[in-house]
Design a protein around this nucleic acid. Structure first.
Lengths: 251, 251
DNA sequence: CGTCGGCTTGAGGGAAATCAAACGATGTGG
DNA sequence: CCACATCGTTTGATTTCCCTCAAGCCGACG
């Protein structure tokens, strides 16, 4: 798949380098295909873990559990993402990475990755870019959690997945619709809401004919109106770039 | 100052490389000392901006403004931080960087930085590390905004600053206390609360003799009890590492 | 056929938002 | 030197969004 579709926000002059980095890393990782079942923890909080991964198929999540049972899903990984890059620099994992579905991933030794980072410019770009891209998405979520209400958060949640899945061709464009393996509890843990409230707001989205989120499948009935709801949470890029599929407002 | 103190969470074997990267970048930046007044926007939302910066003195913030006036301060930069690394990979700035005080910073051309990233292993480590460290702090904030109440958020806010300022020796250890130039409005914009609520909760912290936050100065009266409040929001590192000054719970 | 995980709905309560206004410093210009 | 404006802080009254508690529902699966 073309990097320009996968990384639409990057400076175009970096694309060839990025592609080379992806390939070099892929070669370094190819020896170590891994398979995890849904529910497995790939790495745990506090653990020393010597690998990063490239997610090939399935969904995974970075999450943290508080001592009193509260839980937050910090980020969601989709195929193509590098997982655990940050941790290559740290002594231990600050949070867990768990499989939301069955997962296949390629494993890369931290030592190998760090060696490539310092000796191979393209890999350096690829790794730094993954960190930058994670950070950009995280920034958007911080806005959402800090300043948006439940409706905006869920609209944004749906559209962010829609956009990311489109880029890796996992959306059925007809409807449009896509599979979405999170339970309502997990959606709540990601959006900072309770399961009860998630349920109510999703019902509202359904009743207003904006989007249906049932049976592990999301169907978006009205992209522009949904995007209107989530609009405050998009950064300037996404607002002005309907071609990313994030904000398909009429031109 | 020793990197080991400034970057306490990093893998020790990376420290020398990190230090070299810092130095190389510093040399690349030294030609371009910049001075900004409090309130200035170093870069704006949507702008094409060709530089990243190393903050030397003063405070700055990454923030985003929504169309209806809501505002979120995504991150706070303190002396020593690299600002705008992420944007080196993107076509435009998704959010603004504004000066909370008068600021001095060294400017680095994106092209130079990207060139060094690909040709100089130590710089690659330094840049990737800055991104990873930003991301780690952001992860902590996501937990806070998603799952913590106002009291926990403000306790965490104060202790996070305390820890970071300690490492760069900007804390008066006697009390302990430190200058903190944010207005209550800005604290609210960072913690996802309204100014009114920030005020009430700060009053509560003061009345319970935990911390005073007045006249641009924070004084912590009882570090352990404050840390007890914020404890859920620390990652495993910080919880177990009283020497970082983040969690000074009795051993 | 029972039970288990996830979804759905209702009733009541609470944390934080909103609306509104006053207070205190600081600065400024007549 | 005092009126006056500005900016940040403080406090009160009211509202609302979301949480908590509780219970029923539905499909899957042993």
């Amino acid at each position: 798949m073309a990097d320009s579709a996968v990384y639409p926000l990057v400076r175009p002059e970096l694309l060839p380098t990025l592609q080379r980095g992806t390939n070099t890393l892929a070669r370094a990782a190819a020896d170590n295909p891994c398979l995890f079942n849904a529910g497995t923890e790939i790495m745990s909080e506090g653990e020393r873990h010597g690998f990063m991964y490239r997610l090939n198929t399935g969904w995974a999540a970075r999450s943290r559990r508080l001592e009193d049972g509260r839980r937050q899903i910090i980020a969601i990984f989709l195929p193509g993402d590098l997982m655990g890059v940050k941790a290559a620099f740290l002594e231990r994992q600050p949070d867990a990475i768990t499989c939301l579905t069955d997962v296949t991933a390629d494993r890369i030794d931290h030592k190998t990755a760090l060696h490539l980072l310092t000796t191979n410019g393209a890999v350096a770009v690829r790794l730094a870019f993954q960190l930058a891209e994670d950070e950009r998405r995280l920034h958007n979520w911080v806005i959402g959690l800090g300043r948006a209400d439940a409706l905006e958060r869920l609209a944004f949640f749906i559209l962010e997945l829609y956009g990311r899945l489109r880029r890796i061709q996992l959306v059925d464009e007809a409807e449009p619709s896509f599979t979405m393996p999170l339970t309502q509890q997990q959606i709540g843990d990601h959006t900072g809401l309770t399961i009860v409230h998630v349920n109510r707001v999703l019902r509202r989205l359904r009743e207003e004919n904006l989007a249906t989120c049932q049976l592990r499948r999301v169907t978006i009935h009205d992209v522009p109106r949904l995007a209107e709801l989530a609009r405050p949470l998009f950064d300037t890029f996404e607002r002005e770039a309907p071609e990313f599929g994030l904000c398909a407002a009429p031109a």
